[in-house]
């Protein structure tokens, strides 16, 4: 299963980005292979429709869950209809922390 995490930088020690559509990087973490992939968000500085573009990007990666701070009003129904689970978390956490949380059982 693939999980997308929004990040402010391209390393595991970077904090997660609170904004979904305008985050700097998407971290695609695969729970089966434990692989991590960083995808830059080109829609970051778009005038409008950044959220929609971001949904398209992560949907093309076939992710099942998204971890971010907030989801916009346009993004929520889109992700809902694609059956992608949204997880919203407050405060500063690094990408590594999030991955550790997912992996701990």
């Amino acid at each position: 299963m693939k999980i997308a995490i929004t990040s402010v930088g391209n390393s595991l020690s970077s904090n997660i980005d609170e904004r979904f559509g305008r985050c700097a990087f998407f971290v695609i973490y695969d729970t089966d292979t434990k692989s991590v992939e960083f995808i830059p968000n080109h829609a970051k500085d778009a005038e409008g429709g950044a959220g929609t573009a971001a949904v398209q990007l992560i949907a093309s990666q076939q992710v099942a869950k998204v971890v971010s701070g907030q989801f916009g009003v346009k993004v929520k129904p889109l992700l809902d209809s694609l059956k992608i689970q949204m997880i919203s978390i407050k405060g500063s956490h690094s990408v590594q922390e999030i991955i550790n949380m997912i992996e701990e059982r």
Binding site: L79, D80, Q85, I87, I89, K90, I98, M101
Partner: peptide, 22 residues
């Protein structure tokens, strides 16, 4: 426990634990 919010897109499946901290 981890004070996160999450939704539940697949209504048929029953959620047993938090997707983040279990």
């Amino acid at each position: 426990d981890c004070s996160c919010h999450f939704n539940h897109p697949d209504k048929e499946a029953i959620i047993e634990n938090c997707p983040l901290c279990h």
